[in-house]
Amino acid sequence: MSHDHAIIVYFEGWINSLEPIHRLSEQLRELLDSIDGAVFDGHEIALDGSHGTLYFYCDNAKELWGLIKPTLLAADLIKCKEAMLRLGKPGTDAEEIIINLP
């Protein structure tokens, strides 16, 4: 599988412990274990713990978004603010969809 699509999720939240992001990461990995054609590639967190990014690669970003969105919105201590769905290979003129989250 080529995983040409991507989802990048931006979150906020005062993270004084890595436990909430590790718990969310484990939930996402368990969810994606049963989905062919998708991978959770991890996260980045600002040094001050104020914000971060989650990375997903897949064959169909719109379909994967529908599956992961409930888990992301239910995360404790982390507020997902925006998601960018890239519908094609990096370095191309692939369509990008920006989703603002409540």
Rank of each mutant, 00 (worst) to 15 (best):
G52I: 01
L32G: 04
D93Y: 03
R29Y: 07
H43M: 06
A83V: 02
V9N: 02
A46V: 04
S34D: 12
D76V: 10
E95I: 10
F40E: 04
G91L: 06
I98Y: 13
L64A: 04
I45A: 07
L24W: 00
G91T: 07
R86Y: 05
Q27D: 14
F40T: 01
D41E: 15
K81L: 03
V39M: 06
K81D: 12
C80R: 00
L85R: 01
L85K: 02
P70N: 10
H43I: 03
T71D: 09
R86D: 06
G49C: 06
L67M: 14
F40R: 00
G52F: 01
M1Y: 08
A38V: 07
D4I: 05
K69F: 06
D59K: 11
G91C: 08
L64S: 04
Y57I: 06
M1S: 14
I8A: 05
L31T: 07
D33H: 14
R23M: 10
S17Q: 11
E26A: 14
H43C: 07
A94F: 05
D93T: 08
L64G: 02
L87N: 09
L67S: 08
Y57G: 01
F40Q: 03
I15W: 01
F40S: 01
L47H: 08
L87S: 05
L67F: 03
D93R: 10
I7C: 09
S2Y: 08
D59H: 07
K69P: 03
E19V: 07
A6G: 10
L72Q: 03
V9W: 00
N16W: 10
I8H: 05
E63P: 00
W14L: 12
K69W: 05
D59S: 11
H22I: 10
N100K: 15
A75S: 15
R86H: 09
P102H: 13
I35E: 15
I7Y: 05
R29S: 11
A38N: 10
G13F: 05
E26W: 07
T92C: 08
M84N: 09
D59Q: 13
Y57C: 04
G91F: 08
K89C: 02
T71S: 11
Q27N: 14
F11P: 00
E12I: 00
P102L: 11
D59E: 13
G88I: 01
K89S: 12
